[in-house]
C-alpha cells in the first residue's frame, strides 16, 4: 500500500492548522472586541469560504498565482516561489479555506467571556497581551480545541480547491482525497477503500476525542 498521500494529507493539515492558530487568535480577538465599522466586512471575508464552492476559490488562486500573470510572475522571479502545483501553494490556499473554522470558535469563545474579567485584569495593571495569555485564552480552551480540530479536519477533507490549484503530483500535492478520486477513476477500488477507511477512522477518533474532552468525560482520569 502507498502511504504517501495519507502522510502528505496529515502533513498539510498539521502545517495549515499550526499557522492558522497563530493567525486566528489575533484576528478573533480583534473581531470579538472591535467597534470598528470595518468589522462586518472583515467578518464576511472570513466567512466566505463557508459558502463559496471550493472551485471558485481554487480558480482565482490559479489565476493569481500563475506565472503567466503579473503577481505569480513576480513571486516566481523575485522570491523564487512557485505557488501553483506546489505544497507551499496548497498550504496558503488551505489556510484561507479553513480560516472560518478556526476563527469562529475562538471569536465566540472570547465574546462569551464576561467583560469584567478583562476589565479586572486591566485595573490590576496587566497589559492586553498578559490579559490575553493569562486570563482570556486559558478560559476558552474548549473553543480553541474545537477550532484546532475543525480546521484540521476540514483541511483533511479538502478536495475541490486542491484539485484546482494543486493538481495531482505524488509527494507534492497528491493528498488522500485526490488519491481516492484517482483510484476510483482507474477502477482500483481496493486502494480507494484503503485511503477512505483510514480517513474515516481517523476523523471519527479525532472528533470523538474532542467531544470527550469538551464534555468533561475524561476528567475523572486525570483528577
Amino acid at each position: 500500500m502507498n502511504w504517501e498521500p495519507l502522510i502528505l494529507t496529515f502533513k498539510l493539515a498539521l502545517v495549515t492548522t499550526t499557522i492558522l492558530l497563530v493567525l486566528s487568535i489575533p484576528l478573533a480577538y480583534w473581531l470579538a472586541y472591535t467597534k470598528s465599522r470595518l468589522k462586518p466586512v472583515v467578518e464576511t471575508l472570513v466567512s466566505m469560504p463557508l459558502v463559496l464552492p471550493p472551485t471558485v476559490l481554487g480558480f482565482y488562486f490559479l489565476i493569481a498565482f500563475s506565472p503567466n500573470n503579473a503577481f505569480g510572475n513576480w513571486l516566481n522571479e523575485w522570491l523564487g516561489i512557485k505557488l501553483v502545483f506546489s505544497f507551499v501553494g496548497l498550504v496558503i490556499v488551505s489556510i484561507i479555506y479553513s480560516l472560518p473554522f478556526m476563527v469562529h470558535p475562538i471569536q465566540s469563545g472570547l465574546s462569551s467571556i464576561p467583560l469584567s474579567l478583562k476589565e479586572a485584569a486591566y485595573v490590576m495593571g496587566k497589559s492586553r497581551y498578559s490579559t490575553l495569555v493569562n486570563v482570556l485564552l486559558p478560559n476558552i480552551k474548549p473553543s480553541i480545541l474545537t477550532g484546532i480540530v475543525l480546521a484540521f479536519a476540514h483541511t483533511v477533507g479538502e478536495f475541490g480547491v486542491v484539485l484546482m490549484i494543486g493538481g495531482n503530483i505524488p509527494g507534492q500535492t497528491k493528498v488522500a482525497s485526490i488519491a481516492i478520486y484517482d483510484e476510483v477513476e482507474s477502477l482500483n477500488y481496493a486502494a480507494a477503500n484503503f485511503y477512505s477507511a483510514v480517513l474515516f477512522v481517523t476523523s471519527f477518533c479525532i472528533l470523538l476525542l474532542v467531544y470527550l474532552i469538551n464534555g468533561g468525560h475524561l476528567k475523572r482520569f486525570w483528577k
Binding site: 476589565e119 486591566y122 485595573v123
Partner: peptide, 14 residues
C-alpha cells in the same frame, strides 16, 4: 486603567 492603581470590586466578582 493600568496606570491608575485602583482597586475595583465587580458586581459579578470577576
Amino acid at each position: 486603567p493600568q496606570q491608575r492603581n485602583v482597586g475595583y470590586l465587580f458586581q459579578d466578582y470577576a
